[in-house]
Design a binder for these strands. Structure first.
Ligand SMILES: [Mn+2]
Ligand SMILES: [Mn+2]
Ligand SMILES: [Mn+2]
Ligand SMILES: [Mn+2]
Lengths: 232, 232
DNA sequence: AGCTATTATTAGGATCGGTTAAATTCTTTA
DNA sequence: TAAAGAATTTAACCGATCCTAATAATAGCT
C-alpha cells in the first residue's frame, strides 16, 4: 500500500547500460555487445545477459548476433541519465569548485542517486545551462538534445581559425593535459601546421606566448568549429 | 593494477545497517535484531543474515539472541554516514531551496553516492555547520559528535520557558505539521499547560498570536532545552 | 565455396541481499 | 518451575548482476 506505482525504477546497472548504448548509437549506428562490454568494463557474456533482460522489459530492440537499439522508452531513459550526468558535472564545477577533470567520476555515481527534483533545482540554480563543462549539450527535461556537427581538430586544414567546442570527459589525465595546453571549450586558435601520417597538429592559441603541438590521437578527440576568418 | 587498495568500499545496504544500528545505540543500549528490521523495513531473517556478514568483517560485535554493537571500525563508518547525511540535508536546504520535510529522503539516497571530497566541499560552502536543519549535531570529519542532553517537551514543567532544539526528521508530514505550529529549532516558547494521562501540552510561542496545543505523541519527539527565566 | 578468425550466446556458477516457513532460544507468566 | 509467547536464527529459495569456459554464428579471406 506504500509503493507499487512506478515499476520504472531502474537499477544503477540498467541506467549505465542504457547510457552506454545511447553513446554508442550517437557515434555510429547500432551498439555491439563487445562495444558495450568495453565501455562498461564488463565481460561480454554479462552484456548478453543484460541485453536479454532489457529487451524483455521493452527498453531495447535486440537482433541476436547483430546488436541492439534503444526503443523510444529506452532512449527516454538514457537521455534522462545524460541530462542528470551533465547537469551534475556543471553544478559541481560552477557551484562547488571542482576541476573539470574530476567531475565525471563523481557524476557517474551521483546520477543514479539523485531525484528529478534535485536535478531541476540544480539546473535552475545554474540558469538552465545548455552545455556541460566539456562542451557536451545538455538534453532538455523533455528529452531533446542539440545535434552538433563538430570537426575533429585533425580534420581542420592548416591556416584555418577554429574554436574548441567539445572534449571527451572520461579521462582525467587527458583533461588535465588539454587544460595545460591552454585549451578549453570556447578557446579559439589557428591551425599552423599538421604533419602527415597521423602526425601531430600545431596550433596557435589566441593570446598565447607560443605554439602548441597536439598529438594525433589527442587531436582526434578535440571537437571544434571552424571560425570564418575575420575580415581586416 | 587499477583498484585493490581499499576493500572498505561498503555497499549501500551495509551503510544503512550501520547507520541504523548507530541510531539505536544512541537511544538506549544495544541494537536488537527486530529493532533494526523495523527501522530498515526489512524482515528479521534478513537482518540476521546481514549481522552475520558484518560481524565477520569486523564491523559488529554479535551476541546471538541478544543483540549487536558497533565495533570501533563500525562506529567510524556509521559516523561517516551520519555526517554525510546531515551535511547533505543542510546543503539541500541552504543552497537549493529544499523544505525541511523533503531533505531526508533525498539525503538517504545521496549519502551512499557522494565522495568524501564532495561532502567536505559542501561543508565548506556552508561554513562547517554544527547542526542539521532538524537540529541534529553533525559529526566532525574525525568522527566526534556533540553529545546533547535535550528534554522532550512532555517532560518540561508547566510555567517553564524552553527552546526547541531538535526534531526527528524522518516523517515529512510530521515535520510539516510542526512547522505549521510555528516551531523550528531555535524557537522559544513557554509551557502553559499540560494534561495528565499522556494528554496534550499547551505552549505559547514567543510572538505568536495564540497558544498551540501539542499532542503527547508529538511532544515526546520535540527535544528542547529549558531556558532560565529572564530576570525582570 | 570453404576455412578461419572474430564476435556473440549459452551453460554453469558465485555473491549479495532480500523473502517465507520452520526450528530454536529466551523471557515471562501462571 | 513449566508452559506459553516472543524474539531470533536456520533452512531453503529467489532475482539481479557479475564471472569463466564452452559452444555457436557471422564475416572475411583464399
Ligand atoms: Mn561525464
Ligand atoms: Mn553511472
Ligand atoms: Mn535525515
Ligand atoms: Mn541511506
Amino acid at each position: 500500500m506504500v509503493a507499487a506505482q512506478r515499476s520504472e525504477e531502474l537499477s544503477r546497472s540498467t541506467e549505465d547500460y542504457l547510457k552506454a548504448i545511447y553513446q554508442l548509437e550517437e557515434s555510429g549506428g547500432s551498439a555491439q555487445t563487445s562495444a558495450i562490454a568495453d565501455l562498461l568494463a564488463i565481460a561480454p557474456p554479462s552484456v548478453s545477459g543484460m541485453i536479454k533482460r532489457l529487451s524483455e522489459v521493452g527498453l531495447l530492440e535486440h537482433v541476436p548476433y547483430k546488436g541492439v537499439q534503444l526503443t523510444p522508452k529506452g532512449r527516454r531513459a538514457a537521455l534522462k541519465m545524460v541530462r542528470r550526468h551533465r547537469i551534475l558535472e556543471t553544478y559541481l564545477m560552477e557551484k562547488l569548485g571542482y576541476d573539470w577533470d574530476s567531475v565525471h567520476a563523481e557524476a557517474e555515481r551521483l546520477e543514479h542517486a539523485v531525484s528529478d527534483e534535485l536535478i531541476e533545482r540544480m539546473a535552475m540554480a545554474l540558469g538552465n545551462p545548455r552545455y556541460d563543462p566539456h562542451g557536451a549539450p545538455i538534453p532538455t527535461v523533455s528529452g531533446e538534445v542539440e545535434q552538433l556537427d563538430h570537426v575533429p581538430l585533425v580534420d581542420i586544414p592548416v591556416g584555418e581559425t577554429a574554436e574548441l567546442r567539445m572534449v571527451s570527459d572520461e579521462d582525467p589525465e587527458r583533461l588535465r593535459f588539454i587544460a595545460s595546453l591552454g585549451l578549453r571549450p570556447g578557446v579559439a586558435f589557428r591551425v599552423v601546421g599538421r604533419q602527415p601520417f597521423h602526425g601531430p597538429v600545431t596550433i596557435r592559441v589566441a593570446g598565447a606566448s607560443r605554439d602548441q603541438v597536439v598529438g594525433y590521437e589527442l587531436a582526434r578527440g578535440l571537437y571544434c568549429v571552424i571560425v570564418p576568418e575575420e575580415v581586416g
